[in-house]
Design a protein around this nucleic acid. Structure first.
Length: 467
RNA sequence: GGCGGCGUAGCCAAGCGGCUAAGGCAACGGUUUGCAAAACCGUCAUCCCCGGUUCGAAUCCGGGCGCCGCCUCCA
């Protein structure tokens, strides 16, 4: 498998530190609001990556953090942090806000068929670990204390800027930041802050305060994955400053390099070709889409079917298309039940082999999900031309399920029953057709259609599906 | 101003120097069907614009135009 590493800007052969075992950290949600489909693009990418690694035979330990300490909002918001702002607006305390939106997040990932990570550590439960790293950084000469605040001294870490492609000089030149006289360099970032107005506070060796933006990921990743691990993912907006600072913290504290072997970042999502924003009216949470009648699996399909390093243009039309694509696949699967050829099809093994080869090769090339889907649809078309035996159908089904372990859009085969009355009608219709009483047959089909049951006749009888 | 990326059919989207530019959706024709549905076959793109490099460019280079991300901690 090859993956694109943001750090080296190269496609690299993926080799986990421990063969067959992958340790992965995904930047998770800040739980001050519902996650948007833009956020979910990143989470679904992480999910498909994890599923692909498993598909290729790896055991994956996946950690997703829950940021339940406030990050600051934009400058325009006058520096109020996101948690406090939500708390004020909703007249709740920040802890309640975090609890509420964390649960909403768990509901949403279930709706999107995202496999649960092994652990979802919460920042507020790891403040002691953060303090330990900050202390270590001070001891190692990477951080300094002023007025109860602790800052990271970026000039002490020569690699600062490597991930994002910035240099300190460039950052200085473009700086629109005001000089904070407490800081040695304008780019120094806070590891621990004091502010009596802040609602969430903890005791520390430097006084009562709260942790800086970036320290939680350094603390929680090393706690659950060790001082060095394989993959770290996030949205492209995390590259700088968040991940840049994390590297400086973790490598500065442990002295071990590289902290992370492969950095993988998802590109942003656009809606109707534009940045998602409330003023443009193209701002969607998963719940917004479900309310509009979008099938969550179709949303998942849209989000996973574009390569993760391409901008994804999300449109309601594309969700509709995705729903039809899924239907083509589920119809295909359903039809396998009716396979009844007396002998195995000689052409099938080669078609399956080619399909799997194409699918695997696409995934192995930096998770090219679009190409993987193309290989799957090619296979579907070829198989649709064949007359399959029961054993053939089982072979196709097994492969389809293996593919869906990665895609996660088809779900389990549901053994759904029908009401006895409906069964009776279908039976009656079969008999009507035998008598060539097509009037009655069509009447029954109309009747069932009104109840959301679609009938399809084929050589071996009649099959049904729900609309 | 600095750094990075994108622009391929009505829509979504692969391809990143060389077979007829993948795949899905939609649309339209046909085969099949009692009628349907599903399925199958067919039709549907000179790859944003202009110039250049090359035997050969959607793919590389230069210049436009459009869109997107980042450029920090602040209270």
């Amino acid at each position: 498998m090859r993956v694109y590493n943001t750090y080296t800007r190269l496609l690299e052969e993926f080799k986990p530190i421990t063969p067959g075992k992958v340790r992965m950290y995904n930047c998770g949600p800040t739980v001050y609001n519902y996650a948007t489909i833009g956020n979910f693009r990143a989470y679904i990418f992480a999910d498909v990556l994890r599923r692909s690694l498993e598909y290729f035979g790896n055991e994956v330990t996946q950690i997703v953090n829950i940021t339940d300490v406030g990050h600051m909002t934009s400058d325009a918001d006058e520096g109020e942090d996101k948690m406090s702002k939500a708390a004020r607006e909703q007249k709740k305390d920040p802890w309640q806000i975090a609890e509420f939106y964390m649960n909403a997040f768990f509901d949403d990932i279930k709706t999107l068929n995202i496999q649960p990570a092994q652990k979802y550590p919460r920042a507020t439960e790891h403040v002691a670990e953060m303090i330990a790293i900050v202390a270590k950084l001070i001891e190692n000469g990477h951080a300094y204390v002023t007025n109860g605040n602790v800052y990271y001294d970026v000039s002490s870490f020569p690699g600062y800027g490597r991930l994002s492609g910035n240099t300190l000089e460039q950052l200085n030149a473009g700086a629109r930041i005001e000089v904070n006289p407490e800081k040695r360099n304008p780019q120094d970032f806070a590891l621990w802050k004091q502010d009596p107005k802040h609602i969430m506070q903890w005791d520390s060796p430097w006084g009562r305060g709260f942790p800086g933006w970036h320290i939680e990921c350094s603390a929680m990743s090393s706690k659950y994955l060790g001082d060095q691990f394989d993959i770290h993912t996030g949205g492209e907006d995390n590259i700088f400053p968040h991940h840049e600072c994390e590297i400086a913290q973790s490598e500065g504290a442990t002295g071990k390099k590289p902290w992370v072997r492969y950095w993988m970042h998802t590109r942003f999502l656009l809606v109707n070709g534009q940045k998602m924003s409330k003023s443009l009216g193209n701002f969607f949470t998963l719940r917004d889409l479900v309310e509009k009648g979008c099938d969550p699996m179709a949303v998942r399909y849209v989000l996973m079917s574009t390569h993760y390093r391409q901008p994804l243009n999300f449109t309601l039309e594309s969700v509709e298309g995705a729903r039809e694509s899924i239907r083509r696949l589920t119809d295909f699967r359903r039809r396998l039940n009716d396979a009844s050829a007396p002998a195995d099809c000689a052409a099938l093994p080669e078609i399956l082999r080619k399909g799997k080869e194409g699918f695997d090769a696409a995934l192995a090339e930096d998770l090219n999900t679009s190409a993987a889907l193309a290989a799957l649809f090619d296979l579907v078309r070829e198989v649709n031309k064949l007359a399959l035996s029961r054993a053939d159908a089982a072979r196709v089904l097994a492969l389809l399920q293996a593919f869906d372990h990665v895609m996660g859009v088809l779900g389990e085969v549901k053994e759904e029953g029908l009401a006895a009355e409906v069964e009776a009608l279908i039976q009656e219709r079969l008999e009507s057709r035998k008598r060539r009483d097509f009037k009655r047959a069509d009447e029954i089909r109309q009747q069932l259609k009104a109840r959301g049951i679609v009938l399809e006749d084929f050589a071996g009888g009649t099959r049904w599906k729900r609309e």
